[in-house]
Each structure stands twice: as C-alpha cells, then as structure tokens.
C-alpha cells in the first residue's frame, strides 16, 4: 500500500545541510499497525507528515497503491485527505468553536456526504464511543481522553483506509492512554491500516510492527 524509497528530508542553511530523514525505505501493507519509535528529533513526525501528504520529502520516491503521490496538485491532495486518510494528534486539535457533534461531522461535510447519511454516521460513532450524552459539549468541557476519542471519531468517520496518529497518547494519563490504544487496536482488528508515532514502549507494543528511527535513519524494523 505505502511504498517509500530512499526518502531524504533535509534543510539547507548557509554552510551545511541538516538531514531530518536520510535514505528511508519503508513499505507498509494494508492491515498493518505500525508504531514508529525514536528519541526526540529523530524524524518520526516528519516521516508521518510525509506519509500523510502534509510535508514533501526533499528527495526519494513515494507511492500509494503504486501511484506516485509526490508533487500532487492541491485538489488531488485534498481528495486523499477527504477519502483516504485520517489524522490523530497529540494535542487533539479539535476545533474549539465547534461542539463534539460538529467536530465529527465536519470531515463528512467536506466529503460531500448528504445530511441524513451524515447524521447516521456521526450518531453511529457517538454511540460506539459512548459519547451520545456529550455530543453538544465543546472540547474544553471534556477530559483529555474524551477529547482524543472525539479526535479518533473525527479521523475515522469518513471511513479512511489509513489512520495516522502522531503521539495520540502523549498528553494523556496512562489509564486514558490505554483506553485510546484499545480503541486503536479494535479499529485495527476491523481491518484499518494504522501508523502511529509514540515514545511509549508499552503502547508501541499494541502495533504489529515497530520501526525505530534514530537521526533520520531506520535502525530497526521488527514485525510481531
């Protein structure tokens, strides 16, 4: 599904080139649950952003289902974001001006899903995450774990193939973190491809594969 070949990401300053990622080769198959680990500044988030089409590599090849996705037009990129992938962030990044319901609904609006259907899809997810009672609250009124659940709901409401999570448990207590990881695991079991970035060994273990990055280079790639 995902095919990265010789991906470099660097920044040029006057006298030197600083590499964030160097010669990264990575293949992710459909249905995998990949955890990317590594110390701060090892390039984990950059790698995730490149996979998520939020950032461009400086060099290398990137294909999704054998189609190259570098230098895409804005329109095509937006299409991928609408239909193919969902994002979860460490700081949740919910839209504070919107209620829980509206936050989950928004991607469907962008996707062009009709009102009735939209209602059903959001209601379904609210039900699944036990948040029906909280649908009219604003993000600030929820606990961190609940906010992240909304984040997940928003990411998957459009039924993406790929879920990208950037330290989804980074801001949470361990118990809430576990709850989130269990949710991700369940999604994986339903067949969703997930790539997460994490610092936490234990949570990395929820994945089926762990990739260890160090100074922009893949040091280890273990499958379980």
């Amino acid at each position: 599904m995902i095919h990265l070949t010789n991906i470099d990401k660097y920044y040029d300053s006057k006298f030197q080139r600083t590499f964030v990622l160097k010669a990264v080769n990575l293949e992710v198959k459909e249905g995998e649950f990949v955890s990317i680990m590594g110390p701060s500044g090892s390039g984990k988030s950059t790698l995730l952003n490149i996979i998520g089409l939020l950032d461009q590599p400086s060099a290398g090849e990137y294909t999704l289902y054998d189609k190259t996705v570098l230098d895409l037009k804005e329109k095509v990129k937006v299409d991928y974001h609408r239909n193919f992938m969902g994002f979860i962030f460490q700081a949740y990044h919910l839209i504070e001006e919107m209620t829980v319901y509206e936050n989950i609904e928004t991607p469907l609006i962008y996707k062009g899903v009709k009102g009735r259907e939209r209602e059903a899809m959001v209601a379904d997810l609210l039900d699944r995450f036990n948040m029906v009672a909280k649908k009219d609250l604003f993000p600030q009124q929820l606990s961190g774990g609940q906010q992240q659940l909304v984040g997940i709901a928003r990411a998957i409401v459009g039924k993406p193939k790929l879920l990208l999570a950037d330290e989804p448990t980074g801001n949470l207590h361990s118990s809430q973190g576990e709850m989130i990881m269990e949710t991700l695991k369940a999604l994986h079991e339903e067949g969703m491809t997930i790539i997460q970035v994490t610092h936490n060994e234990k949570f990395a273990g929820y994945g089926t594969r762990i990739i260890r990055l160090e100074d922009g280079i893949i040091r280890k790639d273990e499958k379980y």
Partner: peptide, 13 residues
Amino acid sequence: KEIGIKKVIGSSK
C-alpha cells in the same frame, strides 16, 4: 489552528 485542522481533515484552500 482552526484553519490548519480543517485543511488536514479535508478542506481545500
């Protein structure tokens, strides 16, 4: 931030 999120979840420029 709102704009950034909207872009990530599929809103176009």
